[in-house]
Simulated scan of single mutants.
Amino acid sequence: MKIFFLVFILSLSFYFQKESRKYLVIQDVKYKNGKKLFEKNCLSCHSIDMKKKATAPALGGITKKREKKWLYDYTKDSYGMFEKEDKIAVEIKNQNWGLMPSFIELTDKDLDAIYYFIENK
């Protein structure tokens, strides 16, 4: 009975290791896609190290500071949010940061990848 239990536990261990490797590969692809999209769309204003201010604020920790919906809405249309007097958009503008260009062409999947990259950089 003990041998059966040991074999069962080892089998589970191998299964979960295999599943976690699959997850890491998927996440690695998401990270690479996010980096590529960041470099194409964000790097001209935001520092890639996520710590330094450039012509726009540093993004390190932004996914913990702002809600996902707000980040996606702001990334797609910061001007619209400012015009609607979104509290955070107005605050950013009042801190002498310019509004972001609108990235309406970015899908939620693109933004998932970008913010995953930012979160894990």
Score class of each variant (00 low, 15 high):
E85P: 07
I104G: 12
F82T: 01
K51Q: 06
G34F: 04
Q27L: 12
G61D: 00
K69Q: 08
N120A: 03
K32W: 07
Y116M: 09
S102Q: 00
K121G: 10
A113K: 11
F8E: 00
I62N: 02
K109H: 13
L12C: 12
V90C: 02
M81Y: 02
L12P: 08
P101H: 04
E39R: 15
Y79M: 10
E105A: 14
A56L: 10
V90A: 06
A89L: 03
I104E: 02
F38K: 09
F14I: 15
E19K: 15
E91K: 15
D28S: 15
M100L: 10
K65G: 05
I9P: 12
Q95F: 07
K64C: 13
S78D: 00
Q95G: 05
K52E: 01
G61Y: 04
Y72K: 14
Y116P: 04
T55N: 02
I118P: 07
L10K: 12
L59N: 01
K2N: 11
V29L: 13
I26L: 15
I48F: 06
D110H: 10
K76V: 09
A58T: 04
E67V: 13
A54N: 11
Y31D: 01
D49V: 06
I3G: 05
K93W: 06
L6Q: 12
F16C: 08
I114F: 01
C42N: 02
S47K: 14
T63R: 14
L6N: 12
K53H: 14
I118S: 03
I118T: 03
E119F: 04
I62S: 02
A56I: 07
L12K: 13
E83P: 08
S11G: 15
S13E: 00
A113P: 06
D108P: 06
S11N: 13
K109M: 13
L12M: 11
F16P: 07
T75K: 06
C45H: 07
K76H: 09
E105V: 15
Y79L: 13
I48K: 13
T107A: 11
K52D: 00
Y72H: 12
L10H: 05
F117L: 09
S47A: 14
I9H: 08
T107G: 06
L71C: 08
Y115G: 04
L6I: 15
K36Q: 12
E105H: 15
Y15W: 14
G61I: 02
I9M: 11
V7G: 11
G60H: 03
K109D: 00
W97R: 05
D108W: 06
D86N: 12
K69M: 07
K87Y: 07
N94G: 09
D73V: 05
L6C: 13
P57I: 04
L12D: 00
D77H: 05
L111F: 08
I88N: 03
D49K: 09
E67F: 09
